[in-house]
Amino acid sequence: MEPNTRFNVVLLGKTMAGISASGNTILGREAFVSKKSSRSVTRDVAVESGSVGGMEVTVYDTPGLFNTEMNEDEIQQMINEEVLQRCESGPCVFLLVIKADRFTEEEREAVEKIEKLLGDERLKKTWILFTRGDELEDGNMTINEFLDDTEELKNLIQKYDQRYYVFNNKAKEQAGQVQMLLIKIMKSYFNINVEEEVSEIQNSAVRKGLKDCEQDKSEQVSSLSSRRLVLLGKSGVGKSATGNTILGQRELISLQRMSSVTSECSKEHTTVSGRSVTVVDTPGFFDTQMKPEELAEEIARSVYISSPGPHAFPHCVESNRQIH
């Protein structure tokens, strides 16, 4: 994701699913009109932007299908023209909003219509967002228990490769659940899988770093007011020590070990030649005591905490080793 690029989130679903309320939860404010009604409260596409944990996010709130005064063909045309053709100018994810309740025939039809509208390629960037997490909590039920009791939703989740999350739109503290959703989306969006994709991450990091270095040569220093670097590499190669060298001070924990000293991402700032520099240190690949899924989550979080996005992913290797 390029610097200063907004991450676009498109909310879609059936009327009364909690589309607008979910948009408010993501932005952390009452950005969209949200109230209980048998008719769609949103009758036009509403677009609001904000900073979510330092990341610039634009949310598209769309009219719900069914029980709305608008013709469904008009709704789908509106979504196609005012959302799909605009939001994909940058990184974009689609949230199919479904309430964690009985899955009715209307809801099944709404899902089918939205899937047809989006098409196969966009469905790869679509997540299912369950609402009414507060009702699950009141009933002492987890989302997994709920899905186990609803075979059709369980099959739907499998169809979406387990890309789902649950929101409690009534929670007093909502920042945590929003940040976790964005981290999971980033992990999926950037295809970060430690066991299968680590080599590609390393290679692309090197290519990205070299590309940025070439660009730096042709740009004026004055136009580069900041730089955000995410350090990647195998455990024990000196990522944290490299970060300290860049920062010019001992900010990141650095010890000579075969296992990874860094167990979670850490971010530090400094000023170099009048330019703001941010260094994000990440857990090491391979020789780490972390579980693969935990490591993948942290690598994904490195993108999030360096928002609006890293300029480069320097790949740290020992001088006597080759990159394959």
Rank of each mutant, 00 (worst) to 15 (best):
S276H: 14
E105K: 15
F103P: 05
E197G: 07
E88D: 08
K234T: 12
T25N: 01
G119V: 10
K36R: 13
E173K: 08
T42Q: 14
V57G: 00
F66S: 08
V57I: 14
S51Y: 13
K187W: 02
S254C: 14
S49L: 10
G243L: 07
G28Y: 05
F7Y: 01
M141C: 09
I305Y: 00
S38R: 08
I183P: 00
E121F: 09
H315T: 12
R6D: 15
E297Q: 10
C87T: 07
A205K: 02
G133H: 05
S89P: 10
T245Y: 09
V52W: 03
T262H: 09
E115G: 11
C87H: 03
N203C: 15
F94G: 00
D120Q: 10
L182A: 01
N24L: 04
S223I: 12
K208T: 11
M70T: 02
S218R: 13
A175W: 03
R163E: 00
D281I: 05
K187Y: 01
N191F: 09
P314V: 10
S223W: 07
R250I: 04
K208A: 09
R250P: 02
V206Q: 08
T68N: 04
K291W: 08
S20R: 04
E173L: 04
F146Q: 04
R43Q: 15
F167M: 04
S235D: 14
R86N: 10
K187R: 11
E293G: 07
E264V: 03
T126I: 05
F146L: 14
E298Y: 03
I79F: 04
G133I: 01
F286I: 13
Q202S: 13
T242C: 14
E115D: 12
E195A: 08
G50I: 08
P91Y: 02
F7M: 02
E137H: 13
G90W: 02
L27N: 07
M78H: 10
H324T: 14
Y165K: 00
L27T: 03
V194A: 11
S240E: 10
N155L: 13
S226A: 12
Y60V: 05
M55K: 01
E30D: 09
Q76G: 05
E251P: 02
L153D: 01
E72T: 09
T131F: 02
L224G: 14
F130Q: 00
E88T: 12
K36Q: 15
K35I: 11
L156C: 07
A171M: 03
Q220C: 15
E197S: 13
Q77S: 14
R43E: 13
I253W: 09
